[in-house]
């Protein structure tokens, strides 16, 4: 049962959570107390039959916790909240009324997987969701599109989409995604160009000022030709082709051994 003490804490959390701007520290303290309360009530990881209202409240608390973690940029904490919410989304899905926060949080999780470059996990998670929701729900569509663009290399679309996030919380992840994209583009440029005008390199890498590009170029070891206004990429010499002697010998020996057995 949810005690009256928990109830009042829950209401406090709701208040602190909905205030603009969100009172991160108050929420943190309240969440910690609430989690202890939930554990005592056996609701944090519910296993038996529970009162529907209680379940909804604990789901609400966890959802707020997840969003709070994103707001305070604490990804591991988001991970924990999300896995705790899984029980509510999966096992209680036919008992509980659907939560309005479910898809935003699922979308956040997807985009988190993208930023961590866990593409396989991304697809596994996606595959578990019904297809028609994925392509209609704006919260899910956003990460799905991002993934597609990233994979095919339409980086400018990803860049453009950073302002079209369906919820405020997505911004945090999208921003960190930009760092990943930049290094992706950089590695593409190293392979695809001999040299680039500085101005164009700025636009391609989405830098607004030249100094940003210069520091970035130094990190990657690019040569900057100030006079010619050019960025030069170190050309890699043709890789020397070596005959894999050991491998060849080993496989020949195996053939000999097997043939011996047959004959």
């Amino acid at each position: 049962m949810v005690t009256s003490q928990l109830q009042s804490l829950y209401q406090q959390l709701q208040k602190a959570f909905s205030v603009q701007p969100c009172q991160l520290n108050t929420c943190k303290n309240l969440l910690a107390q609430l989690k202890v309360g939930l554990v005592e009530a056996g609701l944090l990881v519910p296993q038996k039959e529970h009162n529907l209202d209680d379940l909804t409240i604990s789901r609400d608390i966890l959802e707020m916790g997840a969003i709070w973690s994103v707001r305070s940029k604490d990804v591991p904490s988001f991970d924990r909240y999300f896995s705790q919410l899984q029980t509510f989304y999966k096992d209680y899905s036919n008992v509980l009324p659907p939560s309005p926060q479910e898809f935003p949080i699922r979308g956040l999780n997807l985009i988190r997987l993208l930023t961590q470059n866990r593409i396989a996990d991304f697809h596994i998670t996606l595959e578990a969701l019904p297809a028609e929701i994925i392509y209609t729900n704006p919260f899910l569509k956003h990460p799905v599109n991002l993934e597609q663009w990233l994979m095919e290399g339409s980086y400018s679309k990803v860049w453009a989409a950073r302002n079209e996030t369906p919820a405020e919380e997505y911004k945090y992840f999208v921003d960190s995604l930009m760092g990943t994209i930049r290094s992706e583009i950089a590695s593409c440029e190293e392979a695809a160009y001999n040299s680039l005008p500085i101005k164009d390199a700025c636009t391609l890498l989405f830098f607004s000022t030249r100094s940003e590009l210069v520091t970035f170029a130094q990190q990657r070891g690019w040569e900057i030709d100030i006079m010619g206004e050019q960025v030069r990429f170190a050309t890699k010499g043709e890789e020397k082709l070596e005959i894999p002697k050991r491998k060849l010998i080993a496989s020949s020996l195996i053939y000999a051994k097997e043939l011996e057995q047959i004959v």
């Binding site: 290399g153 593409c188 392979a191």
Partner: peptide
Amino acid sequence: DAEYIVGKAIR
């Protein structure tokens, strides 16, 4: 987009 895509293909 084409430029990025071609670049990625080369890489």
